[in-house]
Write a protein that binds this DNA or RNA. Structure first.
Lengths: 224, 224
DNA sequence: CGATGTCCGAATGTTAACATTAGGACATTC
DNA sequence: GAATGTCCTAATGTTAACATTCGGACATCG
């Protein structure tokens, strides 16, 4: 999602994007930066006027964001920015655990050294984060890199359906316990990256599980 | 997905559906029954004319089916019915394993007896299947019931993103090894249902894992 | 004869007008 | 005065016309 610079020697297809993608990115960013707080009604008409685009692409963008779990909607009832309850957070955490378990296994056993280097660089980048918002984005980007390293397309898609919700959760907790997050998280991710490079499945799995638990404790205020 | 009769005393909301849902159901069924074999190009214009509906709902339906992994599409390049390669099948199987692992844990530990009864009834229904097509649908429906028993909304959604692909795989293998499938699978599912009711996480997990492996062997022709 | 360039058709992407629906405001009834 | 019924409005659902783009057919050039 972060506009990656491509490794030299390789070029991907120069995809052309449509208005729907543009709108989706804009609205997603607006949700993350607090412009549309949880509970906000997103009306196709309003967005359409605001962004100077017809309702077609707006509609498509909202459908995509609903697929990412950022919006909820019903028949003839429009879209609303999700409010994550404690149960929701628990659901996200357990599902994320199941996906990441598989991801770590695959990354340790099948990922190329180059892919794991990319993961390591993503971890390094976290140390230079300016503020908590930036760190949250880099945090998610790190896990993106792990999933990318698996080479498992459907697993990445599954992660995509909750990664925005994870991001939203991180952002929503900024201000509650920034200190613990800012100080401990970058170091932890470097350890995670190294665990993958060590190619030891068991210990990597344990580290990732501990990391999730610790991060959840810090962000929910159960620990510092 | 099968139109369930509701348990007495409880009524859900009487939802109203749109044309997009109708179209999605129609096209999905057409893919499963072989009307649109893998590789078929689905043109918005054609479907629109065929179903006597404008392109809007058709477009929405195709997006949904793409989310279910039944179609692949690109910018200005329309939608094509997926052809499942051996790698695809492996991806589906591993992801399904990760999801089902969590599902079985949750079902064993938190599901109500009523929910597990529903799972058991789904297994019983498989014994009375007329043909392989029907059995495939009931097979998927059984696993639907397991995920429903977890009460984990996001886990069910994750299963939804691959259940159609699982169904398509089952249907695509009909004719290759019908016998082994028809004879062994219903009994296996009854065992699975009983394992959940026994509330023994470890043995249930092992049974479900063995079941997946065995089913895959049978359907890919590695065993009978 | 192979490679390159140009054109054209058929499909998707986008738009704006029209149809339908949910949910609330108001009036009505008992 | 509470419950019910009716209308109205603002939003979504649907449609059909218009714009853009992809990819192949054909012609041209080296």
């Amino acid at each position: 999602m972060a506009s990656e610079t491509r490794p030299p020697g390789k070029v991907g297809p120069a995809r052309r994007r449509g208005l729907a993608d543009e709108v989706a990115d804009t609205v997603r960013a607006a949700i993350f930066d607090g412009t549309y707080p949880p509970g906000t009604q997103l009306r196709e008409t309003e967005l359409s006027a605001e962004l100077e685009v017809s309702r077609g692409p707006v509609r498509e963008a909202l459908m995509r964001l609903e697929g990412e779990g950022l919006l909820r909607s019903g028949w003839h009832r429009g879209a609303v920015v999700v409010e994550l309850s404690a149960d929701d957070v628990a659901e996200i955490d357990s599902l994320r655990g199941a996906l990441e378990h598989l991801a770590v296994q695959l990354a340790v056993e099948h990922a190329s050294d180059e892919d794991l280097d990319t993961v390591a660089r993503a971890a390094d980048r976290m140390a230079r984060a300016g503020d908590a918002h930036e760190l949250a984005a880099l945090d998610v980007a790190f896990h993106d890199a792990v999933y990318a390293a698996t080479g498992h397309r459907r697993l990445q898609e599954a992660w995509n359906t909750i990664r925005s919700q994870v991001h939203l959760f991180l952002v929503s907790r900024i201000g509650v316990s920034v200190d613990g997050y800012l100080t401990t998280v970058p170091g932890e991710h470097r350890e995670l990256a190294e665990a993958l490079r060590a190619r030891d499945t068991e210990s990597a799995l344990r580290l990732f599980a501990d990391h999730r638990e610790h991060a959840l404790d810090v962000l929910t205020g159960r620990a510092d």
